[in-house]
Design a protein around this nucleic acid. Sequence first.
DNA 1: CTGTTAGCGCCTTCAT
DNA 2: ATGAAGGCGCTAACAG
Lengths: 341, 341
Amino acid sequence: MKTKVTIKDIAREAGVSTALVSFVMTNLRGGKTAYRVNKETTAHILRVAKELDYQPNITARNLKYGKSGTIGVIFSDISNPFFSEIARYIEDESWQCGYSIMFGSTDESSEKLGKLVDVFISRGVDGLIIVPCEGSDEIIDSIIDRNIPLVLIDRETSGYPGHSVVLNNARTAHELTCRLIAKGCRKIEMLSYTMSLTNIREREEGYRLAMQEAGLADEIIIGRLPHHDTDAHVDSIVKMAVERGTDAFLFATNTLAVQGMSAIVRNGYSIPEDFEVACFDRNDAFGIFDVELVYVDQPAKSFAAESMKSISELIAGKVMNRTRIVLEPQIIEAGTFRSRI
Amino acid sequence: MKTKVTIKDIAREAGVSTALVSFVMTNLRGGKTAYRVNKETTAHILRVAKELDYQPNITARNLKYGKSGTIGVIFSDISNPFFSEIARYIEDESWQCGYSIMFGSTDESSEKLGKLVDVFISRGVDGLIIVPCEGSDEIIDSIIDRNIPLVLIDRETSGYPGHSVVLNNARTAHELTCRLIAKGCRKIEMLSYTMSLTNIREREEGYRLAMQEAGLADEIIIGRLPHHDTDAHVDSIVKMAVERGTDAFLFATNTLAVQGMSAIVRNGYSIPEDFEVACFDRNDAFGIFDVELVYVDQPAKSFAAESMKSISELIAGKVMNRTRIVLEPQIIEAGTFRSRI
DNA sequence: CTGTTAGCGCCTTCAT
DNA sequence: ATGAAGGCGCTAACAG
């Protein structure tokens, strides 16, 4: 049972003061050997530190600096592939900046978001990266009031005055719809959520616009599902779609696409014979099965990189005017696949 | 711009000493109003604290206590669905215990694992939940030496004497293989990794045993792939399998299954006509496409619950003999699907 | 060049 | 019932 070794131990062992040890260690971190200090003393201190397997106590350093070197990241659900991919990239980025990340999931509940924010703040996070959910406006505002660096991603609250990183949702949905139209579809139905989230609404707008431009304004149908218990609803929507003569679906999210496509197949219909499909984000499935559909990949890496860049600049106190970064979809691709399985 | 308020501010404002404030706040946290302190003084202090919107500085408290209320969780890759699902459940559990979680990914690199461990420890995590990777034995040992609560999940290092939560890999692979055999397959080939991970090895053993029991010892073939750049290798393995007359594949992980099945389809073969398939973990794809295969679901929730239970008991200092929890697969299911798409 | 001093914010004896 | 003092580990500023 070794008790933790501190600079004090090193100082005693090396016969110098703790301050000197600290100085050497600090400047060592910079990479270059500590100038301004005797080479020999430096070497000696370093050697002792190695021997004792010294690990600096970051908590103490944080107390001193008034920072925690930690960033709180709050998604709706980290097990959602879209977010877990971003999480991974954020983790990689954080490595560069020397931050550690605490993750949390709201499950689209503003109540949970509130608790998460409180916990993270009292833990002293230096900044927050948040995917806001429905009804989270006051919470977001309070974070701003408290002067805590904040970056919203994927979605925004209404009238949000701060920094954010979002997809060009309207353009993406527009493009997706156009692809479907180009394939000859006319009765294109969009499946979306009842939740009022900015990204969802923008996607709906993009769809609307594309339909209008194509003279298909009368065919616009947007089915909105609750976030929970979607399966049953999806089934009935598919059935109604058949009656309506719908020939294509545009799914507002990947989750919705998975649920929707499952429902289509479950009810005995097939893709693309009965319905053409367009959706957001690639899915492992698209690699395994050669399904013919249109999808766009959201630039997960950019979401991560841009939000980390913004948040670290904010934390560093670099004066920043409001930065609203709008990402463009990276790939718009039509599956050109065989239907083997 | 409000500067942070500390107990000192409250003390001054309330005309008492910081010690009293601290005492009140601390005992307040316990739920009951501070006994041993004048009711009025207590109320007064509390009121001032509210007015000033006092938030205790957890960093300072951590420094004092030498604990952080934080647990470090290190996976190989949090964007892997299996792990992100566990991450989600761990997050839910942590909520109950009052811990916050820091996640990290090793990418199967022991070097990264080492860095992650150092960072987390120096950040003062109270405990570590780790998915060890190849070559991580010394790192794991050093954690034990340093007397830091540790729980390994999914895999173990060789000779690991501590606490862990793992799947009954051998039985699962055995069962999976038997299903394939029951379907009439004889030349069943297993696809695995070159990495020497306990879970992988155990799965191989389960496969071996099942094959031997069925008198198919001569048909045992285990193809081992490197963890990176697998795609090209998979292609050639599929081609060789065709030449060998292989009639089924058992994939050692879900990632491998996705890659393998993609390769099968990519090379013009189909499932289950050309190859029967068995694998670990459900995939969204299985819901969308009606593919016929055999798979088992690993109990992600149990992985999370059991590891959190162990780690919190360890942190709480409850004397625990070594606990090695072996989870059984929850579902063993044969896809009974149509092949519509 | 090297060492000392003085806290960061909090909590816990030990007096009063 | 309350306050004063010391210290957790580290570092910046200030002597020596």
